[in-house]
Amino acid sequence: MTQSGERGPAPSAEPVLEVRDLVKHYPITRGILFQRSYGAVQAVDGVSFDLRPGETLGVVGESGSGKSTLAKMLIGLEGPTSGSIKVHGKDITELDRRGAKRMRRDIQMIFQDPYTSLNPRMTVGDIICEPFEIHGDVLPSSERRGRAQELLEVVGLNPEHINRYPHQFSGGQRQRIGIARALALRPSILVCDEPVSALDVSIQAQVINLLIKLQKEFGLAYVFIAHDLSVVRHISDRVSVMYLGRFVESGTDTEIYDHASHPYSQALLSAVPNPTPVGRESRQRILLSGDVPSPADPPSGCRFRTRCWKAEEICSTDDPELTVRPGSDHPSACHFAEGPLEVGGPR
């Protein structure tokens, strides 16, 4: 569980992915002929991070926190409202069509649901060869089938199954096919949008271990999005906690998991089931009241204040920045950031 610290990349390496102040607002419009915009859903609102080669950034947060929108922007499926995404130093939001197509070789995605991410009417061979057909100059057509079989072998599937259809595979095997497709163009960054949450628990570990193996083999950098905290800890070097479109806390896995300083992170971590009976009674859960506020109308000041037990006057007037707070060693967006997790606070 905790060997992730040793897998860390050389800290001096140039980042492969630099994200600055990324914002995505979806306008809410009314009217069919004459559309008027009256507000916006602030799906992602000012996210920044760096990702170095071979590193894994875990992004955790509950449903509706903007994780998937972030992933879609990273791979260029959605254009950001503002902010920049630099892949190998090039801003992908400013690329022309040709450059955008070229960029796709560097950054690929693994999807959440292996049952919908593979076209049911295409053979596995066609699915894995599609990247080569789109980027025709990567590989001559005579070598594509062979490469597809190599890729199947890399992800632990039988290369002779190349002519089968997706429905002939199990969920875990399908996810491996999705991984093979994402690897085809030899990207340096993989965005994994909840890659194991649709799988059986017994299969999750296999797929996670495959991802770790591939990272070592190809030096991949991962943006690993999930809501399962233990899975994220297992694979991530650094973790960012997302709430209502923003990162509220960022740090190494130990910093977040053992010394969470933001109340939201503390509440999230207190919800992780504890498998060891010893000491289970002394642990207390922080139960948050209410729901996540609507991203179309987020609270003023700190976005978490409506559900926070520490909230005071300042929280509704001053928006806390994501900076290193006194008494802590990693950035946190809370006016009252605390040191080590002290679960069982005033409730």
Binding site: A100, M109, F111, T116, S117, E133, I134
Partner: peptide
């Protein structure tokens, strides 16, 4: 569907 998104992420054009 995700597989259409995946094709777009790979750079597939409208005709494909």
């Amino acid at each position: 569907a995700d597989y259409v998104q995946a094709a777009r992420a790979l750079g597939a054009g409208p005709f494909r």
